[in-house]
Design a protein around this nucleic acid. Structure first.
Lengths: 216, 216
DNA sequence: TTGATTTTACTACAAAGGTACTAGTGTAGA
DNA sequence: TCTACACTAGTACCTTTGTAGTAAAATCAA
């Protein structure tokens, strides 16, 4: 059974959601709050699993409340359900630890599914926000310059590049690729020429800036 | 009516999907392809609205095929449906223009919903991937470890660090800070010890990963 | 097959990087 | 004042890095 808390200053919306959720046998509304401070207080008493949180509420908005609740009770899942698809709201909510971000125009079923998903430890984003998120993360697309430069690297050189951005020295690269360290030097020198840099540090910077390789 | 193309080298999976999609009145499977090149060719002939693409297919994998198709026909929506939740696959798919990324363990209904969503211009990500996405974008919060490490660097060391992540060599740093290159060496060595790395390349990687310094 | 490219590897050398130690100066705080 | 630390700079030494030039085997496209 998923214990849910609703946080919204509009009784109509809370009641509507309760009606919808009443039909779900695995979700129980254990608490309701009408503002940020109210929500923070009731988390302690009611220990909900998931909080459905509006952003535009009095006495600490939903994002501030999320931040505080997440600090006090990190295991509580918080799903933002709001009218606004503003980027700043979205990013702030995510930054403060929200587990999901839905817009109020989402169909009821989607809200129900999202509650189950965050209760199960997953994160959910409204498709419209996902789009923005992707757009935000997608500043690459077709950039002929880097394409050309990266394309100029041979297969082996790309492998060496991967090692370089891991901070490996020539000997380590040689061991990793089963070739001599003299050969590694050749590849490294060629990479330098092709990328137009003068040291391995600069290779790392170039690769990161041009997203030639994944980090982390 | 949404015109759909299936790309997967496993007939069983294609047939299973077709069965499921047959029950949806607004989706029609107009083409099937068994590998990357096949898919690229059939897009031209069949002009699908949405492509359901597996990653692990022969003759150009799904990501490469996505990249090419998106370049030729930017309006075609591509939904990756794959067994792998590897970060690199996911990020690559997104980078190459995929409109969605679902895992094959997603319930059928979710796949159907996702097809409609991308056909409508939205983007969809499997909740598990969303989680990773958020985690990727969420390195803020309170991280005492890095704070401590960064705090351990003296003022001068931080200045040297800034130079290091610009790819400067010792002489350049010395000239920039109006000190001897011997002194620079001292600072660099101290930075290495404090950050626990062994070369300037690793300093750059460390700084990027821990966001000690701005890039771009 | 021919020719171009890739990958491999060597020698030799110059430059840069990195460590260890000593040591003087200045500054901030107990 | 005394201590701790930061900053500076040097010497010495060794390692790593990077370049140049040569060259052979493998691969691949024309």
């Amino acid at each position: 059974m998923i214990k849910l808390m609703l946080v919204d200053d509009h009784a109509v919306l809370r009641d509507g959601l309760k009606n919808i959720l009443d039909m779900e046998t695995d979700i129980e509304v254990v608490a309701e709050a009408v503002n940020g401070n109210d929500a923070i207080a009731k988390v302690k008493d009611e220990q909900p699993d998931v909080i459905l949180m509006d952003i535009n509420i009095p006495e600490k908005n939903g994002i501030e409340a999320t931040s505080i609740i997440k600090q006090l009770y990190p295991s509580v899942k918080i799903l933002m359900l709001t009218m606004y698809d503003h980027d700043e709201y979205f990013m702030s909510a995510i930054r403060e630890g929200a587990d999901g971000y839905l817009l109020k125009d989402a169909p009821s079923q989607q809200v129900v599914d999202a509650i189950r998903a965050v209760a199960g430890g997953q994160s959910v984003i409204h498709p419209t926000m996902t789009k923005k998120f992707l757009a935000f993360q997608q500043p690459k697309a077709a950039e002929p310059v880097e394409e050309k430069v990266e394309g100029a690297l041979t297969g082996r050189e790309k492998e060496v590049l991967l090692c370089l951005v891991k901070g490996m020295n020539n000997k380590e690269i040689a061991g990793s690729l089963y070739i001599s360290d003299k050969t590694v030097k050749i590849h490294v020198s060629n990479i330098f020429k092709k990328l137009g840099v003068k040291s391995r540090s600069q290779v790392v910077i170039y690769a990161v800036q041009n997203q030639l390789v994944p980090l982390t």
